[in-house]
Design a protein around this nucleic acid. Structure first.
Lengths: 135, 135
DNA sequence: AATAAACTACGAAACTATTCGTAATAAAGC
DNA sequence: GCTTTATTACGAATAGTTTCGTAGTTTATT
């Protein structure tokens, strides 16, 4: 049962919970307000709706409700990325990669990590090729 | 005067115009309907609004109006990508790159292109470093 | 226990994007 | 020229998201 992708505001909330773990509405709202002005009841409402949509769980702790993410960060990123590649790069992930590398300054460590990952892919492809020859 | 990013529907229209060049509403609507059902007047309306927003230009050719994109593909992709990296990967372009490479099967040619691009970045960084030592 | 402070619940307003029905207009075919 | 056909113009309905005011509830303070 794949869940619908979160909206922009929902994603903002999720990012905070992914970073900081289970949190109160107060905390999330304070975090949000570091980036933009948003009313407390607005944040409350969004989180309540997210709870109804099963994007968040809720625990009652004294007066407060403590919310936690119910969808995983990686899986959500993957789903959103898929849609984004389709709509913005007409399905070409490599075009997106080139753009991303061009726009943002990547550190040497990041570049190394990416290179290593590419190598891993290439090796995997090589093995596949060898196996095909055998059969 | 930076233009606002196009919406989902607007991007679909733009993708068709970027691929096929200036087109009539009829053509765009037919193209759209290859992927999903959408009424003619819906497409018409969207393109009219895009014209008002200066996302498209319009030329009258006989009975028909011919629309053309007024924003560039690369620039739009860059702007959308920037926002996407921020909202979905908390600003980490390299995380996005790793995910993108992991999700999609890239051909050897694409991988080579990416590797070459990384090398170019590394060389550029190296030159910068050397220059700094001199001064 | 009374008051104040912090929180949740609820409903409605505002905004944005999308969709399409209907009318008006222009062109094409007969 | 008249009818049919394709197009544009316009306005309104729909849907989804975001926003927040107000009321009610719970907890803390005195």
């Amino acid at each position: 049962m794949a869940k619908k992708n979160p909206t922009e505001s929902e994603l903002e909330v999720l990012n905070i919970l992914w970073q900081h773990g289970p949190s109160s509405v107060r905390f999330v709202n304070d975090e949000l307000n570091k980036k933009k002005e948003v009313g407390y009841t607005t944040t409350l409402k969004i989180m309540q709706l997210m709870n109804e949509k099963d994007l968040l769980t809720r625990e009652i702790s004294g007066k407060k409700h403590i919310y936690a993410h119910q969808i995983k960060e990686k899986a959500t990123q993957k789903s959103l990325l898929e849609k984004f590649v389709d709509s913005t790069f007409r399905g070409s992930a490599s075009k997106l990669v080139l753009q991303a590398l061009g726009n943002h300054e990547a550190s040497q460590e990041e570049l190394d990590e990416i290179k290593a990952f590419i190598e891993k892919i290439e090796i995997k492809a090589l093995i596949k090729k060898t196996e095909n020859k055998k059969s």
